[in-house]
Simulated assay, not measured.
Amino acid sequence: MQIFYLLPTTYSLAMTLGLLGNLGALYIFFFKMDQKSPSNVYIISLAIADTIFLCALPFRVHYHLNDNDWIFGEVMCRVTGTVFYANIYISIAFMTCICLDRYIATIHPHKYLQLRNTRWAQMVTAGVWLVTGVAALTFMVTCPAPDLLGTPATQSDGRKRRNCFENFTQDEWKTSLMPYSTFSLVFGALLPSIFILVCYPLVARRIARIKTATARGALRVIYAILAITVLCFLPYHVVHLLHLLWRIKVIKNCLAAHVIYKVRRVTMALVSINSVLDPLLYYFATGRCKWTFKLNFRWLKLRRRRGVYTISDNLKDHWW
């Protein structure tokens, strides 16, 4: 039974820490940084996507704590489910953009200076949001049971539970889920992941030969993205592939199916940790900027029997 508490516990932790980190990052980008670079455009979009994702987690926490019984209606099931899964592909897309930006800035600095003066980053960002948005809305409206929608508000197991994104029928997998899941797995996950995991270690090796501050910053960004991809996204995609193979009866062993189900919940928890680790990526990608808070405390007077003590603290320029 402990596995059923994994998701609500992890989601609650991710929601608390992730909102602090991402909202803090958005505050800094919008109110403390005057210079807007292409890298910052991608980072702001990633932080916005993470914030939207984290705002949807309370509904998922309640769902799992309520014995997987959805009480918020079909529309909210569709919305929160879409946000949850779309965030995976949006995050990978923007992390790929950040890596490309750091690569061009380091290896082709003159070309990068030209791109900085154009709206190329805004166009790419708008394209990512447009493609993912249209894809999500299309599947939400036209497909009866795609991977993002499931069969919300249905009864199952004779226990009158209203499932959300769970317990799909075999026909639903063959007609709607399989084509969408295959497309999203190949183009939304597999190709970007290969690009990050194969190309960027080679890029990092080349950048490591350059002894400049920009090159060191680019290395930190690449290593952070590699770590997030391997820890948060790669396990989910591998297990999701096994889950698809089980659904189409390529994997028929019952024990293997049970293990896949358990491990899939663990990988879904790891996906949510991405929103907690992303603020570290923001910091590495903007290392030349001072992410500081100035805290001013008033005079604190402590009176005791044998004297009066006055304490003054003025904390400045603390990194976080």
Rank of each mutant, 00 (worst) to 15 (best):
Q2V: 05
I3P: 05
F4V: 04
A14D: 09
M15T: 12
L20P: 00
G21P: 05
G24P: 03
A25V: 04
I28T: 04
F29S: 13
F29M: 15
K36P: 00
S39F: 06
N40R: 14
V41E: 04
Y42A: 13
S45T: 14
D50W: 02
I52F: 14
F59I: 06
V61P: 03
V61F: 02
H62P: 00
H64S: 10
D69Q: 03
W70N: 03
I71C: 04
V75C: 00
V79F: 11
T80L: 01
G81K: 07
V83E: 00
I88L: 08
Y89A: 08
C97R: 10
C99Y: 06
Y103T: 12
A105F: 10
T106A: 06
H108A: 09
Y112G: 02
L113Q: 15
Q114K: 14
L115M: 15
T118Y: 05
R119D: 10
W120D: 05
A121K: 07
M123T: 08
M123L: 12
M123S: 11
V124W: 07
A126W: 11
G127Q: 10
W129H: 13
W129I: 15
L130C: 12
V131I: 15
V131R: 01
G133D: 12
L137E: 08
F139A: 09
T142I: 04
C143W: 06
C143S: 14
C143D: 08
P144Q: 04
P146H: 09
L148I: 15
T151Y: 12
P152G: 08
A153R: 04
Q155M: 11
Q155C: 09
S156T: 05
R162W: 07
Q170D: 15
E172L: 13
S176P: 05
L177Q: 01
P179S: 05
P179A: 02
Y180H: 08
S181H: 03
G188R: 05
A189P: 09
A189L: 09
L190Y: 13
S193I: 13
I196A: 10
V198N: 09
P201T: 13
L202V: 10
R206L: 09
R209A: 14
K211A: 03
T212Y: 02
A213N: 07
A213E: 12
A215S: 10
V221N: 05
I222P: 00
Y223N: 11
A224P: 00
A224R: 03
A224E: 03
A227I: 07
T229C: 10
L234D: 01
H243V: 05
L244V: 04
W246I: 00
I248Y: 14
K249H: 13
K252A: 12
K252Y: 02
C254W: 11
C254M: 14
V259R: 05
Y261G: 02
K262Y: 11
K262P: 00
V263L: 12
R264S: 10
A269K: 00
L270S: 03
D278T: 08
D278M: 06
D278Y: 04
L281P: 11
Y282S: 05
Y282R: 05
F284Y: 12
R288N: 13
C289E: 06
W291Q: 04
W291F: 06
T292E: 06
F293N: 06
W299N: 09
L300H: 02
K301C: 06
R303P: 03
R305M: 09
R306G: 13
G307L: 02
Y309R: 14
T310D: 09
T310F: 07
S312P: 12
W319C: 12
